[in-house]
Design a protein around this nucleic acid. Structure first.
Lengths: 149, 149
DNA sequence: ACAAAACCTAGTGTAGTGCTATGTTTTGAA
DNA sequence: TTCAAAACATAGCACTACACTAGGTTTTGT
């Protein structure tokens, strides 16, 4: 039933959006996000760890610490974010880099999967974090905080 | 790591392509496809069963029976095929029909997921089985039949 | 009658998801 | 200099979905 992004990707994206919503330079604590988004903080820590190599996070350790964005949301590419969170985004395994499919040479569907892969990737590649912020509905009715996870 | 289509979808598509490659009206046996594509015939039967409600298959039972396409490949839509094989194609669960997500009203990412969903769907919706046949490479080197599954 | 095909259902090993538990290290404040 | 609060880190575990296998039944040509 999948062909789905995991919670890792969904939660990770939401975390980044929270950071982006903060005033420039101010720190946001992971625990607070976890509480507000109703996500286990231990789990969220793992997710955030996957993002660290990207270099888009500034972390301040110790009491009073927290996270902020190290780059502007306009410079944070969603394809790259998803690659770090999801690991890989190919719609079929034989397109994963490093993989070598034996059918390759005479596969009747490879061309199709390649095109689909490119189509999805190009969508993600064109997007930045800022664009997701911009596309948010203005009709945020706020108030209750019953979330799903 | 997924965000992947399952083998059901991949095998099912390959089965349909085999049928399409047959001369008009002639029958192709599932067992033969299974052997040639190196797929378990029991598993392929389950997959083919999922396609039956679509009405694109003509099955002849009994000895000497087999399958053929009940529609022209130009009239077989890939989105519909995938929906039958995969069950559902939403990149996130909360977009599945019938599902009601509690975050819906104030979700900062819903708009984004909706757009991605539409983007993938439109790609699949535009395609027919015939177009996949046409996009096959002509460089089919044939000969060896070492397949992966 | 028999074989060969389509048709059908239940069960099963494995991998990956979505966590929890349990730490260690860093740092500001008392 | 102790304490608490934060980031940082690793192992393990329950559950689900995937990818099958096993073992049938029904239909039909020879």
């Amino acid at each position: 039933m999948p062909m789905r992004f995991s919670t890792r990707t969904r939660y990770g994206l939401r975390f980044l959006l929270r950071l982006a919503a903060q005033p420039q330079g101010s720190l946001l604590q992971l625990g607070q996000v976890a509480r507000e988004e109703n996500i286990s903080s231990g789990y969220l820590e793992q997710i955030v760890r996957a993002l660290r190599p990207m270099g888009i996070l500034r972390a301040v350790r110790g009491s009073g610490g927290g996270y902020s964005l190290a780059k502007s949301p306009t410079d944070i590419n969603i394809e790259e974010v998803f690659q770090h969170l999801e690991g890989e985004i190919s719609p079929v395994r034989c397109l994963s880099k490093g993989r070598h499919c034996q059918r390759e040479a005479h596969c009747s569907t490879r061309e199709f999967w390649t095109e689909l892969d490119a189509h999805i990737r190009s969508f993600l590649h064109k997007r930045t974090l800022q664009e997701i912020i911009d596309s948010e509905k203005c009709s945020v009715t706020g108030g209750n905080h019953v979330e799903l996870h």
